[in-house]
Write a protein that binds this DNA or RNA. Structure first.
Ligand code: ZN
Ligand code: ZN
Ligand code: ZN
Ligand code: ZN
Lengths: 168, 168
DNA sequence: AGGCAATTGTTATAATATAACATGCTTACT
DNA sequence: AGTAAGCATGTTATATTATAACAATTGCCT
């Protein structure tokens, strides 16, 4: 039930095939169309566990869809987000595959500044504390985004890529 | 110690003067310059508890600083963020005054889709659960952003502003 | 005076995202 | 068949958000 880390040595082809199969099944069950463009964009996002930018996706999509324009990608992204198949990473203006499309979306994202990989964690304790706090405030939730920037275990001992070394 | 809601009837001039005084003191103590431009941008952000966009700030700043350009605003924003005097609201590409510049930055933001006001809450239970989860993941934190989108108490009984399904 | 750091000015452009309208394609009903 | 409606996509243009690169200014230290 607990999410596993995207171990560098894991079988990522399995991640991809699982994600695509789940997406096809969910869309079928919901009566929405996972069209070729949408399927391709989802597959491109799942090429890795890194967050991907819309215009990077556009460049990758162009060879497959000659007519692809920015709006082509954004429409596919909108669809995939609506269907819960990907997450938008607000703090990066980027997108990442969702590992729990068929379960709850808890959206606790650990974002590595070094390798750009994003780990989505199922964190019921955090979420219940959060829900309680939100209730205390009398606030009605539409969506939650919890994004933690930092360095993952795999990159812990590596120097940061050249940035201004700011930390909070 | 608990944050208070930005009650619609509160004395907002007091919010502003407290924020500016705190900012001046902190910058003085840290030996950094709260220059006129930076001070003005901070004051413009504190005009309300709503999240403000950079180009809105630019329009507001221009009458005060004839030479103001986008980069003028972004530089001031960068400074204010570094000093912890404002928060960037990632999910809106906007900015809001920080109510706890001199204390811990816990950055749990409740963002009302109706009135755009942002409430910053001090939520130690959430934060400790979150820290524990992050430790479990072996992740090294640089910064956290917890952004909840929804509807605040004040707006609870009002219809949402025209989002899409406007049929009247 | 000369040098350095910090701030601001200036011009240009990059990066991200959406508006508006046209076209095609399937489905469902007449 | 005709045709209206819904949806996906194509096409063109533009809006919005953010940064790069370099010059000028200011205040301070030696
Ligand atoms: Zn994988
Ligand atoms: Zn990493
Ligand atoms: Zn106030
Ligand atoms: Zn509200």
């Amino acid at each position: 039930m607990t999410q596993t880390l995207p171990d560098p040595a894991h079988n990522h082809k399995l991640c991809i095939s699982q994600a695509l199969t789940t997406a096809e099944q969910l869309c079928g069950a919901r009566g929405v169309q996972l069209t070729p463009i949408r399927h391709q964009v989802l597959e491109l996002i799942w090429a890795s566990h890194k967050a991907v930018k819309a215009y990077e996706l556009l460049d990758l999509l162009k060879p497959l869809q000659h007519a692809a324009k920015p709006v082509t990608v954004y429409r596919a992204l909108d669809f995939l987000i609506e269907q819960g198949l990907i997450h938008r990473v607000e703090s990066l203006n980027a997108f990442v595959g969702c590992r729990c499309s068929d379960k709850q979306h808890e959206q606790l994202l650990l974002i590595c500044k070094h390798c750009q990989e994003v780990e989505e964690r199922y964190a019921p304790e955090v979420m219940s504390a959060l829900s309680e706090e939100i209730n205390k405030a009398g606030f009605t939730v539409h969506s939650k985004a919890i994004e933690i920037q930092g360095v993952c275990t795999a990159c812990r001992h590596l120097p940061l890529p050249q940035s201004n070394g700011q930390t909070t």
